[in-house]
Structures are given as C-alpha cells and as structure tokens.
Write a protein that binds this DNA or RNA. Structure first.
Lengths: 131, 131
DNA sequence: TTTTCATATTCGTTTATACGGATATGATAT
DNA sequence: ATATCATATCCGTATAAACGAATATGAAAA
C-alpha cells in the first residue's frame, strides 16, 4: 500500500516521468540525461535517487560514470503501470522530443561509457570493469 | 502533461486511493466516507476537494448532503489508470475491508440522502428525510 | 600522490501537502 | 428568523519536495 502511494509519488513529477520514458528504451548515464534535458546535474541526480529509492530503477557504476536502467526484475504492479504510461505518453510531443535527443546523444562517439556497453577493452587494456 | 503529473499526485495518497476505489462502485456522500474510514470530516472533505480539482470526481448537492461520484465522462487516460488500479488493488485487504463497510453503510436505512438515487420527488413533496 | 572527471549529497531556502480544530456556508427544519 | 445539519474552507502548524549552488566522494588520469 505504501509501496503503491510511493510509486505514484515517483510518477508525479515531470522530469521523473521523462527519465522513465527514456529508460524504457535502454540504459542511460547521468551525463546523457543532463544533455537531453539541459538541466543541472544536481537536479538530474536528485530525481534519479528518488526513482531508485522508489524501486523503479537501478544504477551500476561503469568507470567513473553511473548508468541507470529500469530495475530488473521489475515488480509486477510497477511494470503494468509503466506499460500503461508508455502507451499514454509515447505520442506526447515532449517525450518524442526527448527520444529524438536521446538518439542524437547516443550517436555522439566518445560519450561517457562509450556506447553504453561494448568497447571497454580499448581503454582498459583488455581488463573488464564489470559485467 | 501537467494534467498527468496532477493525476499521479492525486493517486499518491492513501485516503484518496481508498475513496476512488469505493466510488468505482457508485456514488457516496461525505458522511458515508466518514463512517467507512472513521476519519474526521475536514480530512475527508479536503481529499474530496483535491480529487475534484484533479478532474477525477464530481460532486452534486442532494439536499444538505454532497454526493460524490467518478467524473462522467472520465478522461480516457484517467479511465485507463483507474481500470488498472482497480485490478491491482481490489484484492488488497484494506480495500476489501472498505468495501465491506460500504455495503454495511448502504444497508442502513435513513442514511443521508437515502439510497443515493431515486427518492428525489418523495421528499420534496413534504415527506421527512430523517427520523 | 595529486588532479580531474562524473556523480552523489548537503545546505539554505522555497513551495506544496497534510493535519486537526475552528469557523464559514448553504440548505433544511422549526 | 433562528436553529440545525452536512459540508467546505480557513487557521496555524508540521512534514515532505523541490531547487541551485556548493561541497563531498570515488574512480581514473597524470
């Protein structure tokens, strides 16, 4: 019950909704989100912390960057809510714009942890940092 | 967008969720809700006002009573959210208990505006509404 | 080790919510 | 008109959220 009200509190703030909508398409790091939203770092991090505390997302460290993704496995109730929200908000111009900016951001080579996955050996001389 | 965040704010409080779950089964007046929740009148009215301002419910005056019901027609996005919430919360003990108390409350004859519906003409033609 | 970079967290402040008790309002009853 | 009833709203207060700027932390680079 309290988990439920906490879920809705997490969903009741615009930036948090925007973050969740983006993470439905995959992992992102804080610097990506800062670039996409053009918002100060403390604000982005604060909302990420809120989402994490609410049980919606998880973070993992990749070198000096923090990558965030939807929590896996996601609570069934939460998942159903996210599915619904996705259908309801996907065609909203604000989110479409965010998505477009995200794609552009991902194209940029030499982003934070490079393309979010591969390419770790290059800089780490073959050593793996995790995963 | 703001309508969306406002919706989630409305859903992020326990009593407001309980009220909505009950109104899915039909109209109720403030005094019913006070009795079901055993909570002070100002608290119940405050949350009803919040739900009304959020566009989820409407009130109509019936004599000296105010009857509240889900807004009709309900915004499509809102309706989908309520449908989902209903499936997710129906089997929660708290809401089951509320529902049971609601039924008991409805059985009580000589409630506020009688059985929430008909009986408008009767009492407007000189019949007593309490006793 | 020292510096730098990405991010988290803290600080002081502002705004929003929530609460119970008290009072205002609007309709009916006397 | 006055009283009463059901409800809305206001009061003072308490807690939670939100913000940008500043600072702390932890990993990598120099």
């Amino acid at each position: 019950m309290e988990q439920m009200t906490q879920l809705f509190k997490a969903l009741s703030e615009e930036m948090r909704l925007r973050i969740l909508m983006l993470l439905m398409h995959g992992e992102l790091c804080v610097c990506d989100l800062m670039a996409i939203f053009n918002e100060p770092q403390s604000k982005v991090s604060r909302h990420l912390a809120y989402l994490k505390n609410s049980g919606l997302i998880k973070g993992r460290r990749v070198g000096k960057w923090m990558h965030y993704a939807l929590k896996e496995p996601m609570d069934g109730v939460f998942q159903a809510q996210l599915d619904l929200i996705k259908t309801q908000l996907t065609h909203n111009p604000l989110f479409e714009e965010d998505l477009k900016k995200m794609e552009e951001e991902k194209k940029k080579k030499d982003r934070c942890g490079e393309d979010s996955a591969i390419t770790k050996e290059d800089k780490n001389h073959g050593k793996r940092t995790d995963k």
